[in-house]
Design a protein around this nucleic acid. Structure first.
Length: 422
DNA sequence: ATGTTC
């Protein structure tokens, strides 16, 4: 059991400082009523020991990952760690408004129309789609990944048709053109094999080591500046590729459903970016010209990109939220990041054993909310069952209590698409 | 998370 010291500076009982001394501050935006695995905290502490690390913050959806935890923000000075961003560079949430109302959705008919969406997009030119989106590269090895553009992928990725459930801020919601009858499309996907290829290039050479941005560093990392700008350039390409990917996923679904879409937001939760001066000041850090401060987000949404969609598990509500930019001190205490979802509670490997005695495949294909889940992979269906995830309302509550955001509206799933591949 | 593979 851990004992936490309250962070009196932030004035919040949710934000807890685990470690304030030594080189890096460790904080958790996690209340006592939230589920938290010890191994995730151990992983967080381990990353705090990396050279150049200044601040690590666990989000309310923090859970263990492969070496480093998922649902966290990592602030470094002078160092970039590609492996902290992970292989799915640019993974995130895209949200669109559909030009239909909830009563126009015919469940059976729509479900039947959602076919041939796992294979590469053949109805159009993938390279042209990227070109039109301004996503171009001369790197032929990266171009070869374009085959998968417009596909969702596996794991926790999904596409979901949702309806408005509850409205908390009618003014902001109507500003988006949404009312209580609105239907939206949410895509959670990333850069597929592209991000993995980019990460591999750096891990093969540097392992878990950082790329050092220090301009005048000597010795082994004297080419650090060049390596770091290469990584950032490739990362930027992967992020923009992932945005175009989510847009094509939405386009393919809309063509099947014979509806029109209009974009509402697209926010990535896996990336590394430089911290701006105002953020540094809020953290009490000094701005320097020779070395930058970097924020790595792994399963954490940024608070400086406007509205954010935080989905629950499949079969629970998703929340459209607005970061409280007027309270920069609370945002700083929370690592300028929000949760990216509910967060796993159980390991993938243990879900089937825990659930298959109580739930049959048919029980999981229709959720307690009455929504449909299209997932023809039995193991994945169990791995992604709502029971395998934390309670999203606790995650949302923790972020509100931390003073970091306000909820605009909640959304209820109608159809979740995972895969038709057996 | 992904692509490849026993």
């Amino acid at each position: 059991m851990h004992t936490f010291k309250e962070n009196s500076a932030s004035g919040s009982a949710v934000v807890k400082t685990l470690q304030a001394s030594s080189q890096a501050v460790i904080r958790l935006v996690i209340s006592d009523k939230n589920w938290l695995e010890t191994s995730a905290v151990d992983q967080l502490k381990k990353t705090a020991e990396l050279p150049g690390m200044r601040c690590v913050v666990g989000m309310p959806d923090l859970h263990p990952g492969k070496g480093q935890p998922i649902g966290a923000a990592f602030i470094t000075h002078g160092h970039i760690y590609p492996h902290l961003v992970g292989s799915d560079i640019g993974c995130g949430m895209g949200l669109w408004k559909l030009n239909v109302s909830k009563r126009q959705v015919k469940l059976d008919k729509w479900e039947k129309r959602l076919v041939d969406l796992d294979d590469p997009w053949k109805e159009g030119d993938r390279d042209k789609w990227l070109m039109d989106a301004g996503v171009v590269t001369k790197d032929n090895a990266l171009k070869s990944e374009n085959l998968k553009l417009g596909t969702i992928g596996g794991g926790n990725h999904f596409a979901e048709i949702q309806q408005v459930n509850e409205i908390f801020d009618p003014v902001v919601l109507s500003g988006l053109g949404l009312d209580k009858h609105a239907v939206v499309f949410l895509a959670h996907s990333g850069s597929r094999g592209l991000g993995q290829k980019i990460l591999r290039r750096y891990v093969d050479v540097h392992g878990g080591q950082s790329l050092i941005s220090k301009a005048d560093v000597n010795g082994a990392h004297s080419n650090g500046q060049r390596v770091i700008s290469q990584y950032l350039q490739q990362q930027d390409y992967a992020i923009r590729w992932a945005v175009a990917n989510r847009d094509l996923i939405a386009e393919r679904f809309c063509q099947r459903l014979r509806v029109k879409k209009s974009a509402l937001l697209d926010v990535s939760h896996n990336s590394v970016t430089a911290l701006d001066r105002a953020s540094l000041e809020a953290l009490g850090l000094k701005h320097t010209d020779t070395e930058r401060y970097w924020i790595h987000r792994k399963g954490a949404s940024p608070t400086d990109q406007g509205l954010v969609m935080i989905p629950g598990s499949r079969g629970s509500l998703s929340y459209l939220v607005r970061p409280r930019i007027s309270d920069i001190q609370s945002l700083a205490a929370g690592g300028f990041s929000l949760a990216h979802g509910a967060g796993r509670k159980w390991k993938r490997s243990e879900c089937r054993g825990r659930l298959q005695g109580r739930y049959r495949v048919r029980d999981l294909e229709v959720t307690e909310m009455g929504s449909r889940v299209i997932c023809q992979q039995r193991d994945l269906l169990y791995q992604e069952a709502p029971q395998a995830y934390k309670n999203i309302s606790t995650v949302i509550d923790d972020l509100i209590q931390a003073g970091m955001m306000d909820v605009i509206a909640s959304f209820k799933p109608i159809i979740t698409y995972k895969t038709r591949r057996k």
